[in-house]
């Protein structure tokens, strides 16, 4: 699955960006560029799905793609997927796990949900057996605090709560293949039954580390989705974040720029006021445009320029900003091209 995923990512990007771009997407780099790439190349599902992925491992995989002739180098650090590579992608249709992932949607909620869930299972199964001393599997104080509060609500009927949890999780896992369900269950630490580490699951199920991590994460993403869609789920409170940190929120600095814009400042004035470079403010503009489908680009791109840019994209089959600019003999600005690309993203989405 990991192999498929990487090749798929490179295929989507199609040589527009360097190899690092998809690595940054999978590890969830929080830069404006990466988030834009994620959307532009429709890789939302895979954002932040392997935050601890080792760069060497990624590079090694790329080398193996090369030796199998699945990819071809077109420039330094840039590759396209060959016919042979595409055949691999179509002959091995998206594996089940890739369907489960919802990276960009849940990358903030998932780690918190998983931590709370795991600690609840460990704590409540111990307490139901009157075991008060154990090493908490989650050390973060805010997670422990959450469980403490949750416990106070359910302390009188802990066994009932666990029975309901069993039914909830059992029902949830039932539709998946047994191997997935097994990995999910074996990972849990409970009373007198410590969870299996990633390496153990890897060995037992004959999968790679990355595959095991993707399966676990995918299962959690879908579970969170179910919980969010229901109004009275047993685990409803587990997906609520304390400080409402919306995954799709603007970076702080872009949000400030956005407020200036609302007050009628232009790019130059904002740059002066905030003591930032104009190019930085332009980055913010592009970020805001990706966030708001209604964002009006007209003050920055004339209708004629937009037409030209769209035509160049069609003609050259590329989203590469530099190539487009060159095709138009530098008659349009980088900012204009990037804003038009953001608009294309919104159009594709609908």
């Amino acid at each position: 699955m990991f192999e498929w995923l990487c090749l798929h990512g490179l295929n989507q990007i199609n040589g527009d960006r360097t190899l690092s771009a998809f690595y940054h997407i999978m590890t969830g780099k929080r830069s404006i560029q990466t988030i834009q790439d994620t959307r532009l190349y429709q890789l939302e599902k895979y954002y932040h799905v392997l935050p601890a992925l080792d760069r060497h491992k990624y590079d090694e995989l790329i080398l193996s793609f090369e030796s199998k002739n699945w990819i071809k180098k077109i420039a330094d650090q840039k590759v396209i997927v060959t016919e042979k590579g595409r055949a691999f992608l179509t002959n091995n249709p998206v594996s089940a796990v890739n369907h489960l992932l919802e990276g960009l949607e849940y990358y903030l909620v998932a780690p918190i949900f998983i931590a709370r869930f795991e600690l609840a299972v460990q704590t409540y199964t111990h307490l139901s057996m009157n075991q008060h001393a154990f090493d908490p599997i989650q050390q973060a104080t805010d997670v422990q605090q959450f469980i403490k509060q949750h416990y106070h609500l359910h302390r009188s009927n802990l066994n009932d709560w666990l029975t309901q949890l069993y039914q909830r999780i059992h029902k949830y896992l039932l539709p998946f293949q047994a191997c997935y369900a097994e990995i999910f269950v074996e990972r849990l630490t409970a009373y007198q039954s410590s969870g299996q580490s990633i390496q153990q699951l890897t060995a037992k199920h004959q999968l790679s580390n990355e595959d095991v991590e993707l399966i676990l994460l995918g299962l959690y993403h879908q579970l969170i989705k179910q919980i969010e869609q229901s109004s009275d789920d047993l685990l409803g409170s587990f997906v609520l974040l304390n400080h409402q940190e919306d995954g799709l929120k603007l970076t702080r600095t872009a949000a400030i720029t956005s407020r200036y814009l609302a007050r009628g400042f232009d790019i130059e004035a904002i740059a002066t006021h905030r003591n930032l470079k104009q190019s930085t403010i332009e980055d913010h503009l592009v970020e805001i445009c990706y966030h708001r489908s209604q964002f009006d680009i007209r003050p920055y791109v004339t209708e004629a320029a937009e037409e030209l840019i769209l035509a160049a994209i069609d003609e050259r089959h590329t989203y590469k900003v530099a190539t487009i600019k060159q095709a138009l003999n530098d008659t349009v600005s980088y900012l204009a091209i990037r804003l038009v690309l953001a608009k294309i993203y919104h159009r594709k989405k609908h």
């Binding site: 199964t125 139901s128 057996m129 666990l162 059992h170 097994e182 409970a190």
Partner: peptide, 14 residues
């Protein structure tokens, strides 16, 4: 054990 038995063992020790 099947995963269902394991889940029961883990979540319902009592």
């Amino acid at each position: 054990l099947t995963w269902e038995e394991k889940l029961k063992q883990k979540l319902l020790p009592h």
